[in-house]
Design a protein around this nucleic acid. Structure first.
Length: 288
DNA sequence: AATTATGTTGCGGT
DNA sequence: AACCGCAACATAAT
């Protein structure tokens, strides 16, 4: 899933469900996903969720009375967090084993299941197994957070500073925007959408940008990420939110996945090429 | 049926 | 230090 808007969508949903809940049982279906940590389940059992933080595309679960222990979660390419619950109140009065409206979980891509004291279960699904859940101490957590650059949606994001630093980069502008240590939260979809909004070609060298272009990129990135959050993210292939729903921003994409179709701004044909090793979509006419 | 692509990023080598 | 290419893995499409 996983660019900032998708992760933020899931963060908000999970917090509403997990707030104040205590972990009663953890089932590790795939050891690699937890970094081969044989004590992963034991260390989580009994912990009470106190907060869910997001930095860039990384989720950080915090626990009450245990500031020295956090759970880091990254979805990478195909990770998904699903929250399901058994219906405590059914017509017959008993427990229904139906886990959700959208699918039976766990399924063959479920890597970890975390049960709570509220009949609710948090499932971590990940087809390709690039994603991970990792227990971290305070120092590791702080170190992980420090590696991220500023987020374009941050209240105090400094557009001028960003523009100056962007123009000092030696790569093309797409590679610069994908670098999470430079600016956090953009991925392949939102970089293409940002550069379309800013009217800049993805393969332009960052150093060739003038001040106005760099500022347009800074402003566009924040605007697009915010709009995408409002739409619940983008479902292009795998993304599903914590309730199994798809992201609405897919209908608002201007260039991503629209190769061969006409540019919504000028009518020229959208192209797909390869830039920074990634499939890249842009309008050859109105992006300069 | 082999090759290529896929919403990410860490690593090892310039 | 910054940057590039590749690898981690599973699946669908060509």
């Amino acid at each position: 899933m996983p660019e900032l808007p998708e992760v933020e969508t899931v963060r908000v949903q999970l917090w509403a469900k997990l707030r104040g809940r205590t972990i009663s049982k953890v089932i590790v279906h795939d050891l690699k996903t937890v970094g081969a940590d044989l004590s992963f389940a034991r260390k989580l059992r009994g912990l009470k969720f106190a907060d869910i933080e997001r930095v860039g595309k990384l989720l950080i679960f915090r626990f009450e009375d245990r500031p020295d222990r956090s759970l880091l979660g990254h979805l990478k390419m195909t990770g998904q967090f699903f929250y399901t619950e058994r219906n405590a109140l059914t017509a017959g009065g008993g427990h229904s084993l139906r886990t959700s409206e959208f699918k039976q979980l766990p399924d063959r891509h479920t890597r970890v299941s975390i049960e709570t004291d509220a009949e609710g279960v948090l499932h971590f699904n990940d087809q390709r197994k690039f994603g991970f859940l990792k227990l971290a101490d305070a120092a590791e957590t702080a170190a992980a957070k420090r590696r991220f650059g500023p987020e374009p949606i941050a209240p105090h994001f400094d557009h001028k500073d960003f523009a100056r630093k962007l123009r000092a980069r030696k790569t093309n502008v797409k590679a610069a925007l994908l670098d999470q240590t430079f600016v956090a939260g953009l991925g392949n979809i939102y970089v293409d959408e940002t550069l379309f909004a800013a009217e800049v070609k993805p393969d332009r060298s960052a150093a060739s940008l003038d001040e106005r272009e760099a500022l347009r990129i800074a402003k566009s990135a924040g605007a697009i990420l915010k709009r995408a959050i409002k739409s619940g993210g983008t479902t292009f292939q795998h993304f599903m939110d914590a309730e199994g729903k798809r992201g609405g921003y897919v209908n608002k994409l201007k260039v991503f996945g629209r190769q061969g179709l006409s540019c919504p701004r000028c009518g020229a044909t959208i192209l797909k090429t390869r830039v920074a090793g990634r499939g890249t979509h842009f309008c050859p006419n109105c992006q300069k």
